[in-house]
Design a protein around this nucleic acid. Structure first.
Lengths: 156, 156
DNA sequence: ACCGACTTGTTGGCCATACCAACGATTACC
DNA sequence: GGTAATCGTTGGTATGGCCAACAAGTCGGT
């Protein structure tokens, strides 16, 4: 508890403690906070939310599915899938109908309008991402994605 | 039988859509979710929370400070600082006393017991972090931290 | 010395995210 | 056939990050 040039007049000094700046979990959290704000704002500007994208991405890539499957694929809770499908169906981006082969299930599928919307969200999201990762080169972004994927795979 | 009504071509279920797996913001969010759970659980096991660490880290590195300054240094809201200082003071990890030179302020300082606790949290957090980043080499972890710091600096 | 503008601590509340619990209806398993 | 599991759905909870307002105090200009 010796070194305390409490107000190092230099602007050089970061005001965040070293302990935090060298803690990956803290860095991840901070970066994610920025990312969330950027993405949420960008999506909000076109009336969408993050869950919308996850769900429609799964639909467009794997085709129609039950809500439970959708939840598993996007990492959403079943209950959150309900609300998300409600919102998307209200806007005509997906359709929900009972599965005749299994009357417990609903079959959800994406509409043409939904696909167009998804592609729009791709661009909106792309811009937000560019803003977030501005200081990183393309190679670095790839490396970052690679590492994060490795972490997720390990914990999946 | 009839399996999943919709199983596009035999590829073994890659649960997560490509769109998400190549979206840095989504990857960040997922990784952070895991990190938060690991860290919150680990800290909770010793009766601490994330804010405790941020605040005590700032205190130990920069010395006594007002609550407003603490908030600025750790990126906490003033109102959250109040609650955090309350909890830490109840446990004897920090002391809060009025600043005689500016009667609006409180001066918060860390106690020896608090410093010991902080060092304990260092270890607890270190373990959680190792668990999170298990699949990454030391060099990769450094690279990750470097990139995230670059992003934060750019958005600071 | 005074008045307005700002800061500080504090309380209270908001909103979104991520979960969890339970339920009726249905299907699968043995 | 009977038990266990699954599905959609409704509710609720816990947390995190934030914002608004306020009284007490300080500061800047005049």
């Amino acid at each position: 508890m010796a070194n305390k040039s409490v107000d190092c007049g230099g602007m050089e000094t970061r005001m965040t403690p070293q302990r935090l700046r060298s803690t990956s979990t803290w860095l991840l959290g901070q970066a994610t906070t920025h990312a969330h704000r950027l993405v949420t704002d960008a999506l909000g500007a076109v009336g969408a939310r993050r869950y919308h994208y996850s769900l429609m991405a799964a639909l467009e890539e794997f085709g129609p599915a039950s809500q439970a499957d959708l939840g598993r694929r996007g990492g959403l809770d079943r209950s959150d899938v309900v609300a998300t499908v409600n919102e998307l169906a209200d806007r005509g981006f997906v359709e929900r109908r009972p599965d005749p082969a299994d009357r417990r299930r609903n079959i959800v599928n994406i509409t043409p309008s939904g696909e167009a919307h998804l592609r729009h969200l791709d661009q909106v999201l792309g811009q937000a991402q560019d803003a977030l990762l501005a200081p990183l080169s393309a190679a670095e972004r790839e490396e970052l994605a690679r590492m994060l994927n490795a972490v997720l795979k390990h914990h999946g």
